[in-house]
Design a protein around this nucleic acid. Structure first.
Lengths: 218, 218
DNA sequence: CCGTAAGGCTACCGGTGAGTAGGTAGCCCG
DNA sequence: CGGGCTACCTACTCACCGGTAGCCTTACGG
């Protein structure tokens, strides 16, 4: 029985607003992550979303609004994914370990979310860059707290309070960079990635705490 | 000497082409580093350079050309600055140490060069992103070579050849992230920054080589 | 002092893409 | 069955900005 009911473009489905908004946001994240904010056009987003352009404006507002809402949704996802994996009553190294694993699991699963957060969000002048930077700063401070906690545990409070923030910034950067690297090496599991970082950084940090230092020879 | 005439708008200086090109490139790097590629307008660049827009087109070509030449000049500067500080016959850790110091010295001195290379160059779809990524990959491979060299020196060739590239990616990311952090903390010297990284990463790596590993407790 | 080339400018064009006006089609309820 | 509301679209406007045509101005060699 062939399709007697002709429906030329398969459109006119009249979905509820919430569904459309999700579709539009999905499309926006995908297109923004591929082309970046400026090169992404509302026309392409509307096409990918399977929706006409005015819909985007009536539902989500201007291009900047849309980008902001995309960022916000993905950032929330990332934060929730990490928080879901971490238990705050564990020792610092175990917290870091679990946080890292959750992070790498998230990046592998939501590549586009990660791309748009990490690479594209900074390219828009104005509030978003600030917002993202603030979020990253919070992450660094969190890690710094772990580092300082581990340091004071071992009685080296003052030293780690001086270098802690810098070390935390370095560690976060290392984690991000390794995440990018891992995108091209999907065969490496999140556990391996996290353990690499732990071994690199945490062992070195432990040595530091125990008074061992590297210094230029001669 | 009666040429004490009035020169109303201070213009019409008729400088040689090479000088103008330098002025334009300087202005381009500054504007690109502030606004990014897309948001930067040729009008603003021409204004900052103290030159009219057609000059840019006759001397340096299109906007994309201009961006490419800016990137190229700054990349060359960075590479030369690092190569000037490194001696290839030293042991791996000392090479890394000197490379890092040169890098942080460069970033402190040429903030805008660093910004445009690190943050903005990726935002242009096409050849530049590839070029920059390639350059970064070269840096990672260089570091990976150092890491593997240090590993085989101690008889751990196979292990480091597996994890070396990932570790190098992490280390490069850590260095970059710490560079960004250092922009907000100019009181920290390049020596301190480099030694933080060396202590974090190199000590940890040493431990690894010597068979010590971190692993999740319980 | 004239020719010519190089330095330099003002004033415009045209494409692109964000944002909108105004209309149509399906659904619900009296 | 009709009024009205919501989902949804086509087709447009308009500003901005990359790029250029064409002209003026100074330096200098002969």
């Amino acid at each position: 029985m062939p399709d007697e009911d002709q429906r030329p473009p398969e459109r006119a489905r009249r979905l509820p607003r919430a569904v459309r908004e999700r579709q539009i946001l999905d499309a926006a994240v995908r297109v923004f992550s591929q082309h970046g904010y400026h090169s992404a056009s509302m026309d392409e987003i509307s096409e990918v979303a399977g929706v006409s352009k005015p819909m985007i404006y009536t539902y989500l507002g201007s291009k900047e609004d849309l980008f902001g809402k995309s960022i916000q949704r993905e950032a929330t996802r990332l934060l929730e994914a990490i928080q879901a994996g971490v238990q705050p009553d564990l020792p610092p190294d175990m917290q870091l370990w679990h946080g890292l694993r959750s992070f790498y699991r998230f990046v592998a699963e939501y590549r586009e979310s990660w791309t748009v957060l990490h690479r594209q969000a900074l390219t828009v002048g104005g509030g978003f860059a600030a917002e993202i930077t603030a979020m990253r700063t919070r992450a660094i401070e969190l890690v710094a707290a772990l580092v300082v906690a581990a340091g004071t545990r071992k009685g080296l409070g003052e030293q780690t309070e001086f270098s802690g923030p810098g070390l935390a910034a370095a560690l976060v950067g290392a984690a991000e960079s390794l995440a990018d690297w891992a995108l091209d090496h999907p065969e490496i599991s999140d556990g391996v990635l996290a353990s690499w970082l732990m071994n690199l950084v945490w062992l070195g940090f432990n040595d530091l705490v125990e008074g061992q230092v590297w210094k230029p020879s001669e």
